[in-house]
Amino acid sequence: MSDVTDATTVPITVDFSGGLEMLFDNQRRHSVSLPAVDNEGRPATIGFLIDYLCKNLMKDPRVDLFVLDKHIRPGILVLINDADWELEGEEAYEIQPHDNILFVSTLHGG
């Protein structure tokens, strides 16, 4: 609603699936008002979002289940509006208002 006039944050939804929701308060969907720019004034990217989520949304201290060596850990797919982030430029993708970002952990059981 206010996002048209409020240029300082970008409203997005962030979803977790495949067990990752466990790290985020057991909640699968979060509405996030992401700062529109990072500390250096550059537009917010997925890379920035991941860092932001670790610092602000993750209650569980097991950060390494989400991020390893400053990158998303192997075995987690990132989807931007339901498309693999590799189709969109991965960490460099600039977040747009109302984007849906889904983090899904790949499963192996059966």
Binding site: S17, G18, G19, V104, T106, L107, H108, G109, G110
Partner: peptide, 9 residues
Amino acid sequence: AASVQKSGQ
């Protein structure tokens, strides 16, 4: 396909 707990792919 794969599945654990409450999710499937």
